[in-house]
Design a binder for these strands. Structure first.
Lengths: 172, 172
DNA sequence: GCTAGACCGTCCAGATTAGACCATGTATGT
DNA sequence: ACATACATGGTCTAATCTGGACGGTCTAGC
């Protein structure tokens, strides 16, 4: 039960199908891109490979179109729902961050002058853009649904903006 | 020049050697673990493979012991320093987050009750632990050096703590 | 009909990854 | 001298992940 060979992306597939009902890989990609993709990114091709494996394990059921695009539509099985719930009950572990901006900041002494200002300006712009994406999402979905995770997004972006803003100010 | 085949981990190697002088792979690992590893994690074996490639590209020089452990010590070349500076001057891009806690939170409706509380408690503990690691690091290194990146670490952990704390409180 | 562009699926070479495995130095106690 | 334990240091591999190319299918508009 609750196979150890399942990775986080497996559970993203299970979770999305549990929440939104049967879907094709393509559907999953679009849903992921504007929700869970913000704090767990992965390439498109995973969303074609993963469901296949889950079908093999009996956690999803598959129905393929006869003609045309031969779409595969995946649906939950009771085993799948159980696996998802089992995973949800287990400890999650620490987040991993991969921030090229902080990376460069860490080494910024090795660069010529002006580098810090340029870096701070870029990061500031990126984080502000991301923050307004979040604001849009919030309006689309309302405060319910993805509200909680979206809130963490807000907190993170605001912290980042404060951080880079301070760095780009002339020292007092 | 400034080969496109270089990834972020390549520049971590270059940067660490630029900052701390010649080092072995093992040295690099220890340095990385308590500094840059917090916002850019990667496996140990990379730190053996990467320097080799950088030597091949002429960005590092290598000196191997004759006997015993046959340690390889890597040092900067002028080309390496130039590549590092070139990279530092280029745009950094957006951070990527992989947060299993937020992932589970996003799907928490699919779980039984009590799951949210357990998740929040775990995450809270993890983030508090991380925060005190940061405080220790700060005392070791003083406010200079890695101070700036460490500050972002603080901001992030404090935001996370506030977030999970609010979730674990009974709704008003 | 025709075409452009969105939709949908598959594939694969190369990079990345965890972590097992093995070897060497050093400190300590007997 | 020998045994033990632990930190140090290096190598390897199987499995997975990744980006992105490629090729089909539909629909709307002309």
């Amino acid at each position: 039960m609750s196979d150890a060979s399942l990775g986080p992306s497996s559970y993203i597939v299970l979770g999305l199908i549990a929440q939104c009902g049967a879907a094709t890989s393509y559907d999953l990609k679009r849903q992921a891109d504007e929700s869970v993709g913000y704090f767990w990114n992965f390439p498109r091709s995973q969303l074609y490979a993963e469901p296949q494996r889950l079908v093999g394990l009996g956690l999803l059921s598959e129905q393929q179109e006869d003609g045309g695009r031969r779409r595969r539509t995946y649906a939950m099985t009771p085993e799948g729902r159980a696996a998802l719930q089992h995973w949800l009950a287990a400890p999650a572990g620490m987040p991993e961050l991969r921030d090229p901006g902080l990376l460069k900041l860490f080494f910024i002494d090795q660069a010529g002058n002006g580098a810090l200002e340029a870096l701070a300006a870029e990061q500031l712009a990126l984080h502000r853009a991301r923050l307004s994406e979040y604001r849009e999402l919030e309006q689309q979905h309302g405060p319910g649904g993805i509200g909680a995770t979206l809130k963490m997004g807000h907190l993170y972006e605001r912290a980042s903006i404060a951080f880079w803003l301070e760095l780009s100010e002339p020292a007092t």
